[in-house]
Structure formats: structure tokens, C-alpha cells
Write a protein that binds this DNA or RNA. Structure first.
Lengths: 332, 332
DNA sequence: AATGCATACGACAACGTTGTCAACCGAGCT
DNA sequence: AGCTCGGTTGACAACGTTGTCGTATGCATT
């Protein structure tokens, strides 16, 4: 900027006025400055500008999700991005992969960068390390998971009710032995779904065979292997509940491999792009990632606009989408 | 920081030494400073630090893709993120949606923020507005599309060869009327694929019926509609080539709706998560988004490490994945 | 006792900006 | 001629840090 000022024969402040489109600069001077800036490849330094302007906004919010590449996380992030675009707020995105120390590290990093807000799909089980920021009024919105240890906005899905609906659907179709494949037990989302499963059994006054409940499944390949193991039991399940999208994918693959896709029922949690195109169509508990993301974005903007009302916890009800796989009766 | 210094009864510089883990601070003073910092909710300000340290790194790179929510873009970004994580470099992600002014705006914004590098899946047809940055040595890597107007690293797939392989595969199976559904003609990627189609026809000395070539298809719904229109012709196609993942999804859906999925052949470009699970399995030209992203990340790191060799253009060969839908013969 | 030396700490300037305030200029007024 | 006034422009400090250099202290050496 100093060089531009020198080349244009004006003061620093005048260059500042020009790059900020402030009034009170004669057209001829403005032109001289712009030419000089162009010739010197000058770029305005937003960091210095933000620093000088004091507590002003940086125009960046952090978006920490489970996996930027997963369709659920990615779709949600996209919706958040769309909500922020009108204000030209950028998104600093990162994947946590359920690793809690990574969450801590990245959050600290983002806070040092003075992000204007945080969207968090946490990997940790408590987030009290954020309490200073909460006190300071930093906008934080939890996505897909509830905060623990601090009280801030959250937008989640009723996982318990969704899982319960899935199991009730299968029970209603006559199934009594249901293979239940679920994610890391440490993830609250996953824990809630297991609770929903137990609730459904309890409500139906039926016993849940714990040997059919397998936890800590992280990818489609493992899901296939686990499904295979259950199918090889002497008394195999007549139905599966896959508590996450990649798990459902693995189960479908194993059922197809064995040609059992029309004989073993299957309900997934979380929709997959082509779930309606497999045969039979995959019955799922759908959670609308776009709607969730929109709501997260909305909350964040409200907080950025100074809304300091009590934290709001929005819970969306997931919906059962009937497509065929979940309506197969035992012994077909 | 001033407050922390005052509370701890030390100078600014000493606090700076403590927060930066510099040597030469006695344990007792260090403790006093840390306690004071904790009590005052002090956070180190990275922007000010970077400013003072001069041209040092900001630890952020921009990642501009077509759509953060699309599986191809998202998977690629994820791979880039993984490559950058060991250096704790963060990714500022944004979707361009093929809107070229948005690309300009966001890139300018990122440059003002002094990002350390740029990953760009461009929406514009020329990027000469970046030439000053190229001259200045800013690491820029193009993903999935070649740069135009500037010369920087790029990592792409051979779209022409991929499309040609798809058409040759269908021609080899006896098809002569192939419905070709493709994305915006203005996207170079898309244009290359159409070139590949023409090449295949030319090599086989067969005429290409332009009425079967439909461009500017942006989503699965439109793809379904277009496929329906072609199927309703007096002389309908016996095969489809869907030149992008969402288009393939739409075509599959329409074929299934009409129960034609075993009678009309279909080859897609770009894999879909469950493409092997539909019946018949979807034959595709697969491009490995993860591998592409890894390569982009690698190039970026090399440039960040000072590699100033001539720009490298890595081209991956997409592979034909045979699953059934592409091997149906006409008149089955 | 005088010297050397390492260790711990602080004063100050600078990074690239911008808000504040003062200075200048020519035009229009009394 | 002296005045005010709106429109331009510039000097300076400050934002929160850190690199440089200087100073003070304690301790071992001669």
C-alpha cells in the first residue's frame, strides 16, 4: 500500500479510501491510485484490515463435520454454505472422523483465527472447552448432535424415534430376529439409535437378542462381513436394521451377493442417493440433510445478527420411506 | 495480551514468549502468565501474529469446487484435506455451481485473505485474472479441469478417452442409435466428453445422429425427462451414454420406471456409490476422485515446499467398469 | 575485587491497515 | 479584503503481535 501511495503520489490514507470505496476522493486521484495498484499487483490485505478495524467480523465460519466426503455431511455443509453466501461468509471446512483430539485442535485453531462462528458436528463427548467462547457470545450451532457441557443452539434428528420406527416397522411385519448393525457406541447419535431399538422391543414386550446387535461398524466392507457372520448363524436373522448409510450399503451388497435381497428384510437409517433404484428398493428412515443444514445456517445467521435469546434445540423427525426391502415378511 | 501481561506482572514480550513456547522464560513466570491467560480467557490472535511475522504462511488454502455437496467434488476435497492435515493447513471450501462471476469473487476474497494456495475446479473459461498471483508464485492447482490463460499445475482425467471408450463399448455391442446426455456445453470437461463421443463415431466410420445428443442437462430430474423424450421417438435409441453421475442416475430411474433396464443398454461417466447394486449393475467409466484429490494435495504441498519447476499436467486414465448395463445388445 | 558470561526479562519498532482530526484549497459570501 | 464553507487530502496513532537489541541479575572465573 505504501508503494502504491508513492507511485500514485498520494498518501497512504488516500489509497485506503480508494480501495474501500470511500467517498471524498476526486476521480482523477482515484484513477491514479487504481492504475498504480494495478501496476504493482497490489492486493488489499484483509487480515490487517480486520485487525485495525478492531473486533469487526472476519467473514469466516468454521464447519467441522464427521467427514467432508460423506454424503450426509457434505449435503449439510452445502446447505450451510448456501445460507451464508448472501453475506459472503466463507466456510472453513474440516473432517473430524470421530477423533476428539482433532476436534479440539481444529477448534482452537479456528478460534485463534477469530472465526465469526462455528458449526460443529462434534466428535468429543463433552465440549466444555468452549465455555469461554459461549460466554463471550460466539455463535455456535451444533449439527446432528446435541452439545454436552455447554448450552448452545443445536439442530438434530430424533434418532431414537427414527430407530424405534424402523424396528416397529420390522416387528409389525412379523420379524422377531433382527440383525442390528450400528456405528461406534461412543457416538451419541449411534447410542440414541440403539436406545430407540430397545424401546421398540420393550414396547412390544419382546426380548432383544444382544447377539444380533453389533456395534462399532465404521464402513461398508465391515458391514458386509458382519452381515455375513449373522447370516451364517444356525438361527440367522430374518431382517436387518442398518443404523447408518454406509452400513446399509454393505448389508445390501452382502444380501445381493447371496441372492437374499427378496427374502431378508432390510431397513436403513439415512438415505442413499440410489436407494430407490436397487431391487427391491431400500426402505429407509430418511433424515433430510439439506433441511438440517438450512436450519443450521439460519440459526447461525440469527446469532450473527445479535439474537441472544436462550439456545434453541431444533429436532427434526426423520421419516420412514417405504420402498420394498423393509416390507418383506419372514420366511418368504 | 496487554491485560495478561499486566495481570501477570510481566511485559508483553514475555507473554508472547510463553504463548509461543519460546525458551528463556523461568518456570515460575511461565506459570504466572498461563494462569493470567486462563483467567482472562485470552486467545492468541493468529491474524496479528501472521501480520507481524511478515510474509509467513497463513495455514489456509482455498478449495473451490463445482459443488461441495456432490459426491465427486466432496470426495476429492476430502482427499485434499487429508493431504494437508499433517501440516495443519485448513481448507476454505466453496461451491461455484458453474457460475463464473462467483469464481472471481471468491478467488479475490481468498487472495485478500492471503491464502497459502488454491485448489480450483474452475467455472470460468479463462483464468487470466490470476496471472499476477501465478507470477508471484502462489501455489495453484487445477482439479478436474485444465487451466486456460495461465499455466499452472493441473490434475485431470482424460475425458475424451473415457467418453470414447464408453461409445466404443456400446458400438462393439452392436448399438447404432445411442442417446447421449451431457452437461452444460460450456464446461470444458463436458465438451471433451462430447469430442470423445464424436471421435468414437468417426473412428468407426459411423454417422452421429445429432438429434440423439442432448446437452445442458444439470440434474437427475431433467435427465429422466430427456431420456423419456428420446425413448418416445419413433426410432428410439437402443442405448444411453450418460456423461455425468447425476445424469446416469436420472436415466436409470427412467429406464426402471419403464421396465426397460434389461433391454436398453446404458453406460455412465463417473461412478455412483451404489452403481454395483442396481440390477443390472451400471457399467461406468470410473474416475477415481480420491486418487485425483491425493494427487492435487501432493502437488500443492510440493509447491508450498518451494518446488518451482514447470507446471505439471497430470492426466489420469478413467477405467471402464463392466457391470451389466453396458453389455446389453440391441433388440434384447 | 574485578571480570566474564549465561540467563531472564523488557523497551521499542514494525507488520498493513484505517479512524480521527487537522490542514489545505478555491468558491461564494458580506 | 476578509470570511466561511464544502470538498479533498494528509499526518498520526492504533489494532495485537513478534524480532531485535539492550539491560539487569546471579554466578563462576581470574
Amino acid at each position: 500500500m505504501r508503494d502504491v501511495a508513492a507511485l500514485a503520489g498520494v498518501s497512504l490514507k488516500t489509497v485506503s479510501r480508494v480501495v474501500n470505496d470511500e467517498p471524498g476522493v476526486s476521480p482523477s486521484v482515484r484513477d491514479r491510485v487504481l492504475v498504480a495498484a494495478g501496476r504493482l499487483d497490489y492486493r488489499h490485505n484483509l487480515a490487517a484490515s480486520n485487525l485495525r478495524r478492531g473486533g469487526a467480523r472476519t467473514g469466516v465460519v468454521g464447519g467441522l463435520v464427521q467427514d467432508v466426503g460423506n454424503s450426509f455431511s457434505a449435503t449439510m455443509l452445502r446447505a450451510v454454505e448456501d445460507a451464508l453466501r448472501p453475506r459472503s461468509i466463507l466456510l472453513l471446512a474440516a473432517s473430524l472422523d470421530e477423533v476428539d483430539v482433532r476436534e479440539r485442535e481444529i477448534v482452537e485453531n479456528l478460534l485463534s483465527r477469530r472465526v465469526d462462528g462455528l458449526v460443529l458436528m462434534p466428535a468429543s463427548d463433552r465440549q466444555d472447552y468452549l465455555s469461554a467462547e459461549v460466554r463471550a457470545g460466539l455463535p455456535i450451532v451444533f449439527a446432528d448432535r446435541r452439545p454436552a457441557g455447554i448450552d448452545v443452539d443445536s439442530v438434530t434428528v430424533d434418532n431414537r424415534a427414527g430407530a424405534r420406527a424402523a424396528i416397529e416397522h420390522l416387528l409389525a411385519h412379523g420379524h422377531r430376529r433382527i440383525g442390528i448393525l450400528t456405528d461406534l457406541a461412543s457416538i451419541p447419535t449411534s447410542a440414541r439409535r440403539v436406545e430407540g431399538v430397545r424401546e421398540a422391543y420393550a414396547a412390544a414386550r419382546l426380548p432383544l437378542d444382544d447377539s444380533l446387535l453389533v456395534r462399532d461398524i465404521r464402513d461398508a466392507g465391515t458391514a458386509s462381513t458382519v452381515a455375513a457372520g449373522l447370516l451364517d448363524l444356525d438361527d440367522p436373522p430374518t431382517a436387518f436394521f442398518a443404523a447408518r448409510n454406509v452400513i446399509a450399503e454393505g448389508v445390501v451388497r452382502e444380501l445381493m451377493r447371496r441372492g437374499l435381497q427378496r427374502r431378508i428384510a432390510h431397513v436403513g437409517f439415512d438415505d442413499l442417493p440410489m436407494a430407490d433404484l436397487v431391487d427391491p428398493g431400500l426402505t429407509v428412515i430418511r433424515q433430510d440433510a439439506t433441511r438440517l443444514g438450512e436450519c443450521v445456517g439460519e440459526r447461525l445467521l440469527a446469532r450473527l445478527d445479535g439474537d441472544d435469546s436462550a439456545p434453541r434445540h431444533t429436532v427434526f423427525a426423520p421419516t420412514l420411506v417405504v420402498r420394498g426391502s423393509g416390507e418383506i415378511r419372514p420366511g418368504t
